[in-house]
Design a protein around this nucleic acid. Structure first.
Length: 818
RNA sequence: GCCGAAGUGGCGGAACAGGCAGACGCGCACGACUCAAAAUCGUGUUCCUUCGGGAGUGUGGGUUCGAUUCCCACCUUCGGCACCA
């Protein structure tokens, strides 16, 4: 073996060198290869906030390592990167620093591109997409038109959530927490009545509940299921005394005969008509009070019930009974029909209301295991199913058929039908801000609301705009921009001046990566057919009820519009956790606990930072940054460097030593392969550390220069390559191996070499470990038992007793039971 | 209240199909090297112990020869939803 000149491991010298070479060589270019299986690995694209955060490294490094692993396993891997570049932070920063949002954004993108390069990730930069480029948002607008033409986009006047700090409306998904605050800035939202654009996500509510064919974490599935909030029941038509139909939704049609009053939401359109002159002042005052309240005050669950009698009555369709109609704020206009039938005996909220206002309580369900219910004394509503009582023709129906039979009864008589309700709302996409894709709609006094013809896209965002937020769309304040001519009649017309929610732009970015400079459509179908769907999608779980619902909706809509294919955009989803500051708190500039990745790279090198982020945490959990722990990863790579590069003493190692080295190498390969497949990154690094410890010991015993050593080093560098791409490439080159380690195939596992010849048999007496004996791996049960019996420790614990039972688990243990 | 995830040494964490709890790393202790320190290398490191052992994976039960792992009940933490009819 040739003697190598000894050198120190200096990551700062080798890392940028290889990064430049890889890029110059196009080593990570992903092109269609029809004969090769493809793998589309996607990591959520960052927002260009200014600086790359350690959180970006934490998210991207393992995704990159796994993409590299898949490539070595023979897949044609695409791992693209881009920027989600529209959005409020650009405007906020612009206001603060008096710099144009566009300038701020593109400066940041340039800076982050450079920082991303220092990670040594295998991005194919030719596929980069930036959502604020006209060539990108042209297609966001085109998609808007498609949705509009397919009746999946519509404009509606309605009460919407408004962030008074961001000065814009928000989608329901962007309002968070008990205090209903803005997802971006934390300010509590208020309600405004506005004319806004929506996407019909509710049309897909049912389909979005199915996760068939995709492997997504339980956490995300549960969250989305929860968010969509499907309830099954019936809608029933009641009538007012004046003859108006009053529809209600109930999940308990079997309690219909127990309805003793009705409640309307204060905003319900029939309130004014129903209210009698005598009750008018009280009702008007109550409604005015409720409207003045915020949603937070109004929706507090622990609040005492309030309400007012309208003076009007409704007819219960099942028994023609006349029941009073009340107005109360515990009924929400946004769910169901904004009206309920109240069944106080079987609904806690209705019971509280009834007791407070002395309304009738009537038992219509008797669960078999409960004592006879007494409407006069009951303190808690009984929501359990049970036999229907006092329910006219359905009296006596058992609980398990009650709802079903009632629905059939309603349908027979044409007074109601089985119905499903969802919590999910349509997606409000209008934003009264500047830095977004303009909604490509024109309003013409003669021709009405018109989407701009596709060939007139993109509707360019003007640069010369006063972007300071006023509550009005900045585009509306531009002196000329909004005036245009009607695409149909050519007369004077005005543009829509709102921009689109940036989640619209990020709903389809994985398509743009396929062909970011394609001019004929949002993507080149050739590329789509080869690469889609995304095989592995990784990113933060905070998007579970926003981006991850929107993008599924978008994909299904595309499928139905004949643009895309398949039911789901991303087959496998995995979420990483969050890296916190060393103090265990969320990193923030104001707390001063921000860990700067650039600085860590300067100190330790990118490979060490990568290795530590993979090694130090369960990826899905994350945790506090530990400035001490990273030392372990740094020392490890130093050891890898010196153990592989420094000449060893030539010796005559025992065959046993060589065999055991080979065994460890193949065992490591087995576990590293499995862990890559299962996204368990921390144990990949620990297995590689173990192997290095073993190799270092074996080297002391003289294996250096042997075939086994050569194989160990070769395998080691290939296994290390996805984790630490620079040091492995450098060592690969220094050993004279053919460029590049990253285009090598993944090593081949020799199961026989990995098999243990000798095993440690655990010997127990009464389930307690008393001895450990080394035996041949293929020992039969009887010999195992006899060998174990000879153990001194066993003899001592057995004494004169004869074991009642002996359990032998092949290759594992022998247990003597007394 | 409902849904979901998670509780293992001083710390991050490991244990793959019910079979050696604590791999790997940090920290710490001791030793080697050094005039010395750092770095590096080596050894030890769950707790208690009368040195025989005993206890131990959030708590209490259960199944089993045997449970971090399976079942039941509960506690705690985190995340989501919540007057949703």
């Amino acid at each position: 073996m040739a003697k190598l000149p000894y050198r120190m491991y200096k990551p700062e010298e080798i890392e940028s060198k290889w990064q430049r070479k890889w890029e110059a060589d196009g080593l990570y270019h992903a092109d269609i290869a029809p004969d090769q299986p493809k793998h589309y690995a996607l990591t959520m694209l960052p927002y260009p906030s200014g600086d790359l955060h350690i959180g970006h490294w934490y998210a991207i490094t393992p995704a990159d390592a796994r993409a590299r692993f898949m490539r070595m396993r023979g897949f044609n891997v695409m791992f693209p990167m881009g920027f989600d570049a529209f959005g409020l932070p650009a405007e906020n920063a612009a206001i603060k620093n008096k710099i144009h949002p566009k300038e701020w954004t593109y400066k940041n993108i340039e800076r982050m591109r450079q920082q991303l390069r220092t990670m040594g990730a295998m991005f194919d930069w030719r596929r980069e997409a930036v959502s604020s480029d006209p060539e990108y948002y042209r297609w966001s607008q085109w998609y808007f038109n498609q949705l509009y033409r397919h009746d999946l986009a519509y404009r509606k006047h309605s009460p919407v959530d408004w962030c008074p700090n961001c000065n814009t409306t928000l989608a329901r998904e962007q309002v968070w927490g008990d205090d209903r605050h803005c997802e971006r800035c934390g300010t509590p939202v208020i309600k405004k009545e506005l004319e806004q654009w929506f996407f019909r996500t509710t049309r897909y509510a049912d389909e979005l509940l199915s996760f068939e064919g995709i492997d997504w974490p339980e956490r995300v599935r549960a969250l989305q299921t929860n968010w969509i909030g499907r309830s099954e029941g019936a809608s029933v038509a009641f009538r007012t005394e004046q003859g108006d139909e009053l529809e209600i939704f109930t999940t308990r049609p079997d309690t219909l005969w127990g309805a003793t009053f009705m409640v309307l939401a204060p905003e319900h359109p029939l309130v004014a008509k129903i209210t009698t002159p005598a009750q008018k002042p009280a009702v008007e005052q109550y409604v005015a009070e409720v409207i003045r309240q915020t949603d937070i005050q109004r929706e507090a669950t622990d609040k005492e019930k309030t309400g007012v009698f309208t003076g009007g009555y409704a007819i219960n369709s099942v028994n023609d009974e006349k029941i009073p109609i009340w107005v109360a704020d515990y009924v929400l206009m946004t769910y169901g029909s904004g009206a309920i039938m109240a069944v106080p005996a079987h609904d806690q909220r209705d019971l509280e209301f009834a007791r407070k206002f002395n309304l009738e309580v009537r038992v219509v369900i008797q669960p078999p295991e409960m004592e006879q219910l007494d409407a006069k004394t009951m303190l808690e509503a009984v929501s359990a199913y049970g036999m229907m009582v006092n329910s006219g023709p359905l009296t006596g129906t058992p609980g398990d058929q009650a709802s079903e039979k009632t629905i059939a009864y309603l349908e027979d008589r044409g007074i109601g039908e089985g119905a499903v309700n969802y919590r999910l709302r349509d997606w409000l996409i209008s934003r009264q801000r500047y830095w977004g894709a303009p909604i490509p709609i024109v309003y013409c006094a003669r021709c009405g609301t018109l989407p701009l013809p596709d060939e007139q896209l993109p509707v360019l965002l003007p640069d010369d705009v006063e972007w300071l937020p006023t509550g009005e769309s900045p585009l509306k304040l531009h002196p000329t921009w909004r005036f245009t001519c009607c695409p149909v009649c050519g007369g004077e017309a005005e543009r829509e001046t709102d921009t689109m929610d940036t989640f619209m732009c990020s709903s389809w970015y994985h398509q743009r990566y396929l062909s970011p400079r394609y001019h004929e459509g949002p993507f080149d179908l050739k590329e789509y057919d080869y690469w889609m769907p995304v095989d592995v999608y990784t990113g933060g779980v905070e998007h579970a009820a926003m981006h991850l619902i929107y993008t599924r909706f978008f994909h299904k809509a595309c499928r139905d519009m004949g643009i895309g294919k398949g039911d789901e955009p991303m087959l496998v989803l995995r979420n990483q956790g969050q890296i916190l500051g060393p103090d265990g708190q969320r990193m923030s500039k104001s707390r001063g606990n921000v860990v700067d990745p650039d600085k860590q790279v300067r100190i330790y090198g990118a490979d060490t930072v990568r290795a530590y982020l993979m090694f130090g945490y369960r990826w899905a959990d994350g945790g506090p940054w530990d400035p001490g722990n990273i030392q372990g990863s740094s020392r490890w790579l130093q050891r890898v460097w010196s153990t592989i590069l420094e000449d060893g003493r030539a010796g005559k190692p025992a065959g046993r030593v060589l065999k055991s080295l080979r065994r460890k190498v193949h065992q490591t390969l087995r576990s590293v392969t499995r862990d890559f497949e299962q996204f368990e990154f921390n144990t990949i690094v620990s297995a590689l550390m173990e192997l290095m410890n073993e190799m270092s010991k074996a080297k002391q015993e003289g294996v250096w220069g042997s075939d086994e050593w050569e194989e160990a080093v070769d395998y080691y560098l290939r296994m290390l390559a996805p984790v630490a791409p620079h040091i492995s490439e450098e060592l690969w080159a220094l050993l004279g191996k053919a460029y590049s380690v990253h285009t090598q195939p993944w090593p081949t596992l020799d199961e026989q070499a990995a098999a243990e010849e000798q095993i440690t048999l655990v010997v127990q007496v009464n389930g307690k470990v008393r001895d450990r004996i080394t035996v041949p791996a293929d020992i039969d049960d009887e010999s195992a038992r006899l060998t174990a019996l000879q153990s001194k420790a066993v003899m001592k614990h057995l004494g004169d007793n004869k074991p009642r039972k002996v359990i032998v688990v092949p290759r594992k243990l022998v247990n003597f039971v007394l």
